[in-house]
Design a protein around this nucleic acid. Structure first.
Lengths: 240, 240
DNA sequence: ACCTGAACACCGTTCAAGT
DNA sequence: ACCTGAACACCGTTCAAGT
């Protein structure tokens, strides 16, 4: 009898905890994800989680590992540039499915095995392309978070803190914003309106995130290719 | 008499709150900065702060504004490339004095006037250099957080979460780490050792952050210069 | 071996009251 | 006009106890 009831809630284990945490974060965002809330979701008392995860930091580490596991492995038999490009765009798709993951990734203080594994195979793509260790090192820094398929966009319109849809702005408020912008930030306004001339909003970001991401990625990849062809070495510190 | 005592603790105002918050964050880090702790530092009950700052988010906004105020204005009469470069490096010095500011900046959900002002004058440097609105827009995205003098470095060794110095690693632990790295992450190890061959550590980042920052910055600036010279326009979407 | 309950030391913020 | 005190609804985590 009690066994029957127990079966309706299978034994907790690390994996079930992590999967539930990822699902919960996907649903409600990272802010409301607390140990207590997660426990509740699993029909368990908060302290039960601590048998499977040392503390909240380790929970977040585990969640990151789950997400990284979803990134495609490198495609075989292509040149380094397309391998890198495709991998980055795959990572991007994954991180976009788990909006919270970007921020959590940024707050990890030391890399988990999954993170190191990803970096290792990423570096391997440059090595396979004949890059020197030296150039590869600098290139990894230059690519930075783009390696994970995102860039640090301050104030990206899609990322509201509470996970709600952006609040609709009343027309008169929009007009007032426009006034203030044109008086104080004419350059910002010019760029913003040019970027969103085909959608209705004035200050909202009407620009194509994916295009911007690829623009910057290709700018970097082309620069990197040039350095590689020139057999650039850092010890000489020449102008690029 | 009571007036005498009151003079030893001058009236609170918004500026005093923000200055104290910045000083406290500089000292103890952003984690321990709570409304309660800040109030204590100001010899005041927590709720007293709420007369000068609507809530904690607004406090953080204000702190960001204080920091941005320390960035040098653009130097006059130089070409766009050196103007941008110098400004970014000035921002970098400021953000390095206030280590917490990077993370706080990243969590702002909508820009404060100081942020908009900085962006506006940043965009102005490209306009003054003859850039089209279109190219300027994409360039701003590509530069991203580098505009503020930092890049999103996951796991940078200087940023421990608690603000303590990195824990010293016992030699035998270091040896074990080396073993594990060479077995599982040979590429990471190769890059890491090459970068730190002149300092003692094996896995610690012995690389020159400033060099890496400028490497990536110049890679971008050179690519941007090339596009500008070619009068690149996004509507044609040519290969870069 | 795994889960529970009660407790501790924190948060940000509200409300009504004091001066 | 500004500051206070008590309270509320949350946190992560400890410890000792249950099964």
């Amino acid at each position: 009898m009690t066994q029957q009831i127990a079966e309706r809630r299978p034994r907790l284990n690390r994996d079930r905890v992590l999967q539930a945490a990822v699902a919960l974060a996907d649903e409600v965002g990272i802010g409301p994800l607390s140990m207590r809330r997660l426990a509740q979701e699993l029909d368990v008392v908060p302290m039960a989680l601590y048998k499977h995860v040392a503390n909240k930091e380790e929970l977040l580490d585990g969640m990151v590992d789950v997400v990284i596991g979803e990134i495609d492995p490198p495609v075989a038999g292509a040149d380094w540039k397309s391998m890198v490009r495709l991998r980055v765009l795959s990572a991007r798709r994954v991180l976009q499915r788990h909006q919270w993951a970007r921020r959590v990734l940024e707050t990890r203080t030391n890399p988990t095995p999954a993170v190191l594994g990803y970096m290792d195979s990423f570096i391997g793509m440059f090595f396979a392309g004949g890059f020197s260790v030296d150039l590869t090192h600098h290139v990894m820094h230059a690519i930075g978070s783009r390696m994970w398929g995102f860039t640090q966009e301050l104030f990206d319109a899609t990322a509201t803190s509470d996970g709600d849809a952006p609040a609709p702005v009343a027309p008169e408020v929009q007009a007032a914003m426009y006034q203030e912008m044109s008086a104080n930030y004419p350059n910002v306004l010019q760029v913003a309106t040019a970027a969103s001339h085909d959608d209705g909003s004035v200050v909202g970001s009407g620009c194509d995130d994916q295009f911007e991401f690829e623009f910057a990625l290709d700018l970097l990849l082309d620069g990197i290719e040039r350095l590689h062809q020139l057999q650039w070495v850092s010890s000489e510190h020449p102008s690029l």
